[in-house]
Amino acid sequence: MAKVELTNIHKSFGDNHILKGVDMSIEEGEVVVILGPSGSGKTTLLRTINFLDAADEGSVSVSGFKVDCKKHRKSEIIELRRKTAMVFQNYNLFANKTILENVMEALVTVKKYNKKDAEKAAIEILAKVGLGEDRLHFYPSQLSGGQQQRAGIARALILNPDVILFDEPTSALDPELVGEVLQTIKAVAQTGITMIVVTHEIAFAKEVASRVIFMEGGKIVEQGPPEEILVHPQEARTKEFLNRIINTNA
């Protein structure tokens, strides 16, 4: 059974038809990287999975729990969100809570852990993303972007979700901080958790992805293993996009 299954996803913002019938099936343990020019709908697609943007049409299924986008209930969305977690471009850490509290928050309020257990689990996870005891009681505004994003990853990981959604996790970072965050994401990928990553980091995609999806104009243009899509793309649009990216990066 597929871990994540999207069927015929359509989404418009006003007159702007962003997603035009996307189908996607992701197996357990896959690391899927979605590439595409800006405006291609890749971030919107990611956000339809946890209903931060509810699709107008189609269905979303995570671990067999299927929600019809046209007629969804609040309780279904919450259930779906509890199977997923997200890492945001702008980290979106809770500004009124310390790093430790940020990571504990969902365990306490959503999973009803007692504080002691939640704290223990949070300290453990934070250590895994390289945030030691000396950083636990800092507020997000006191940390670098890289540290904030690693805390964001810890906040997602601690829920032990069926799939983690990464929305351009390194786009807002200073260039010298990108590496540490990509390292962390890579380490997460190696644990075998299912991941969907929207990014512009081609090198990262090559190294970590088990599958690369190229989107343009609200549709999937091409998909396959990274060496196939990134090195020998079949579609002209994919080639053009990769050329542009590689030339600007060089």
């Binding site: 946890n50 931060l52 919450i78 969100r81 509890r82 997923t84 977690a85 997200m86 945001f88 702008n90 979106n92 850490l93 809770f94 500004a95 009124n96 809570k97 928050e105 969902a106 309020t109 959503v110 906040r155 997602a156 829920l159 959604l165």
Partner: peptide, 21 residues
């Protein structure tokens, strides 16, 4: 607004997100 989305993304209800965040 991003913090509200983050609260939703970890499975919090609207009331929880409002009160806690």
């Amino acid at each position: 607004e991003g913090q509200l989305e983050a609260a939703y993304s970890v499975g919090m209800t609207k009331t929880q997100a409002m009160i806690r965040i």
